Amino acid sequence: MTYVKVCPLADVPADGALGVEVDGTPVAIARAGDDVFALSDICSHAEVSLSEGEIYNGTIECWLHGSCFDLRTGKPTNPPATQAVATYKVKVEDGDVYVSLGTDD
Rank of each mutant, 00 (worst) to 15 (best):
V20C: 04
A86M: 02
D70A: 14
G66L: 02
K5H: 08
A17M: 12
V22G: 07
R72A: 15
A17C: 13
D35M: 11
D94V: 11
Y56S: 15
E52N: 09
I55L: 07
D11L: 05
K89C: 11
C7M: 07
S40M: 03
P13I: 02
V85W: 01
L64R: 01
I55W: 03
V97A: 09
A32C: 14
V85A: 07
D11Y: 00
V48T: 15
V4I: 10
F69Y: 15
L9S: 03
V36Y: 05
G66C: 09
V27R: 01
H45L: 03
D96H: 14
W63V: 09
P80A: 12
A46I: 00
Y88L: 12
V36S: 01
S44A: 12
S44N: 06
Y56H: 14
V22C: 02
A17K: 02
Q83D: 15
K5L: 12
G16Q: 00
T82N: 14
A28G: 09
F69E: 01
L9H: 02
N57V: 07
T82G: 13
A17T: 06
S67Q: 08
A14D: 13
A38W: 01
E21F: 10
H45S: 10
I60N: 06
Y88E: 12
V99E: 10
G33V: 00
C7W: 00
G102Q: 15
L39E: 00
S100I: 13
D41L: 03
T73A: 09
D23F: 04
D104E: 11
L18A: 10
F37H: 14
P26R: 09
P13Q: 09
R72M: 09
N57S: 15
C43W: 01
L50G: 03
V6D: 09
E93N: 05
V27W: 05
Y3Q: 11
V92L: 03
V48Q: 05
V90F: 04
D34C: 04
A10D: 11
R72Q: 15
A46F: 04
V27I: 13
P79G: 15
P76C: 10
E93S: 10
V48H: 02
C68P: 00
I55S: 05
E47T: 01
L71E: 05
I29R: 05
D15K: 01
A38V: 07
A17D: 13
T25Y: 04
G24M: 05
S51P: 04
K89T: 06
P26H: 08
K91W: 01
A17Y: 10
E61Q: 12
D34P: 08
E47C: 05
V97H: 01
S49E: 11
D96K: 03
L101K: 08
C7Q: 04
Y3T: 06
H45P: 01
G53S: 11
A81T: 11
N57E: 15
P13R: 00
N78I: 06
K75D: 15
V6N: 08
L50F: 05
V97S: 03
C62Q: 04
M1R: 06
A10T: 14
A14W: 04
T87R: 11
C7L: 07
D15E: 12
L71W: 02
L50C: 02
A46W: 00
P80S: 12
P8S: 12
G53K: 08
Y98E: 08
V85M: 05
E93V: 13
E52H: 10
C68D: 07
D41R: 06
F37I: 02
R31C: 05
V27N: 07
L50I: 08
P8M: 02
G53P: 05
